[in-house]
Design a protein around this nucleic acid. Structure first.
Lengths: 366, 366
DNA sequence: CTGAAAGCGCTAACAA
DNA sequence: TTGTTAGCGCTTTCAG
């Protein structure tokens, strides 16, 4: 048992009768070594069970060949317990859009020879999970609201970072987002003009969710354009934008009209417009339980285009985000910075991806 | 411009007036440093924009805090072009089970303080993508058929590796799989006994796909148990188990009975049993085009329980795999090895996860 | 085409 | 509690 438990270039070099530099070359640029020599090295490596250390490589070459992605642990807690799917344990339907972004980034990364390091932000932990990722990649993307701005501030000074689906947050960062306002405006227009609805209600998330805010603005714009009263604030705001909250929001909305309990003061809205699909789905449940028909009695719409939106009944009218593309664009932006030999002070790029509308049953189409 | 572009422990140490060891401690074990000192260090780090190098850390501590996952780039090529979804560009439906496994592993990893490095195997590349991953993680999982056995042979000698959803492949590896045979047997029994079908046909994948083989065995067992002729071989075998091939297989099956073209010699099967959902979905298309009704004229079943199986019409009866769980179990197995201070020669573990049946429209249920 | 030598940035004993 | 001193395994000039 003379050899160390984990073989290194030295072991391989010795066994192959060459120098460590040659071993290194064989792995980095095979063609720069004579075939005979190369084979000797490869054979020795094989015999020894040699696997190049990524850490050592990274240290020496100042590049990891890895890109990172920080995303929210967006698994709707409700989904875990609430048995709304036909098959209770079937949670396929709940795969949210972060999966798509992961896929998109993974593919793009791989095409460019990079691997992808992913990490969801743990809700409770005051964790510096970012640091963990940041230290091991050549650049990374963060989905909005995943990383404390302070940390990003520091990190982005040393490493390319791109913001996803959020506000740029820190203004020297590249970022890719979707046309939130455009999509919501068009969807709202559809409700008003094509379906002739006039009493709409908008359910948003917290004020600090830029996506939700942008959507609300699109909504408000459509109202103005149609000559309807322009709301200054969403009718209801939720905190996490989950299904449970969506269900609650719908109840709240019904309560205000006296349909449920309490003395209603307004007429019931003809349409409930939600800032995301999850809430809309929750609302669908509430409405069904309350005997309010969708879309006959009230239209319901979401935003995102998660898989679940097509599985619920009625199917949910929503605005689809090109999440896969977001991942790909993020990688492109990252590589642009990484490849810039110049420490790079190019202008921060901002990519806005177009959305598409999915008119389905919940608004009276489909 | 005195400081280097990328600050290191030295820079931070100098600015904070301490030694590099102290800086290191602050990041690794904050409590081992006096609060005053710690704050000085943190402040200096912040000012400098210091981010610990994961590579250097990994090199020095011989641990990366990262787990890996190699999965097949299983995006069915057909899916990309074939516009079978209502919304052509909506590929939500095609998310396969690797996404679920990724999710499962990510969650479990994070719970244990690890990040996840993912990499799909590029079809064309004779790439040693494994090496890339292997060198940067403390252990990793590979989905069956993703990595050349030779490479695994070498790598697994130096690093914990767990096989997913496949045969162990290399017999000293841990692995987690699902009860393929059990599921297929029960599903087949259902077809025979509950629906009274007697002429069944099984469409499998290549002989070297252990999952497909196990399923075929389950199928054969059910036939034997029911007193039906026991097939020695599947009626049709495909290569990639894609939708296109499934469609083709269905045609083949119909052709043999003269329903399509050619002189049929057998009677048309009453049930087409596919080794996975993708093929079954492809078959559904063929049958529809051929005017063969499902399930009235012929029952169709799949295996896997991918999201798409619930979206097609008729909905597909299938066997659902607990993919999320697989990811979690994989992580557990990995950590067991990693934490084993003993270089570990414990017996290779083999976890078999139970499957559940989803009786839907394509077999006459639902 | 190959070798020698100097780090890359951090952790880990061991001292103090 | 904090500092000193060696490496960790590989890439990289620079020679030969």
């Amino acid at each position: 048992m003379g050899t160390p438990s984990t073989p290194t270039v030295y072991d391989v070099a010795e066994r192959a009768g060459v120098s460590i530099a040659t071993v290194s070359r064989v792995y980095r640029n095979p063609d720069s070594v004579r075939a005979t020599t190369r084979d000797k090295v490869l054979e020795a490596a094989r015999a020894l069970g040699y696997v190049p250390s990524g850490s050592a490589r990274g240290l020496a070459s100042r590049a990891t060949g890895v890109l990172g992605l920080c995303f929210p642990d967006y698994s709707d807690p409700d989904a875990e317990t609430e048995a709304l799917a036909a098959d209770a344990d079937d949670d396929h339907a709940f795969m949210l859009y972060s999966d798509q972004i992961i896929r998109g980034m993974e593919r793009a990364s791989r095409r460019h020879g990079y691997a992808l390091l992913i990490a969801a932000s743990l809700k409770g932990g005051p964790e510096s999970l970012v640091a963990k990722v940041a230290g091991r990649v050549d650049g990374f993307a963060v989905m909005a609201g995943t990383v404390p701005t302070d940390d990003l501030e520091v990190i982005s000074r040393r490493l390319p970072v791109v913001m996803l689906a959020g506000p740029r947050g820190i203004d020297h960062l590249d970022h890719v987002e979707v046309a939130n306002a455009d999509g919501q405006r068009e969807l709202t227009r559809h409700l008003i003009e094509d379906h002739g609805l006039r009493r709409l209600a908008f359910v948003s998330g917290p004020p600090n969710s830029p996506d939700a805010e942008a959507r609300f603005h699109g909504y408000a714009e459509a109202c103005r354009a149609a000559g309807l009263p322009v709301p200054a604030e969403p009718d209801v705001r939720t905190v996490m934008m989950t299904q449970a909250e969506g269900a609650q929001a719908a109840e709240e909305l019904l309560a205000r009209t006296g349909t449920v309990a309490g003395a209603g003061t307004h007429e019931r809205p003809e349409a409930m417009v939600f800032a995301n699909d999850q809430m809309a789905v929750g609302a669908l449940h509430t409405l069904e339980r309350s005997g309010v028909r969708v879309p006959q009695d009230v239209a319901v719409t979401g935003f995102d285009g998660i898989p679940l939106s097509r599985l619920v009944r009625p199917t949910l009218t929503t605005v689809r985000q090109p999440m896969r593309d977001m991942g790909e664009r993020a990688v492109e932006l990252l590589l642009r910075r990484i490849d810039a030999t110049e420490p790079g002070h190019e202008e921060p790029q901002s990519v806005v991806l177009p959305v598409t509308l999915a008119y389905r049953q919940s608004c009276g189409c489909g």
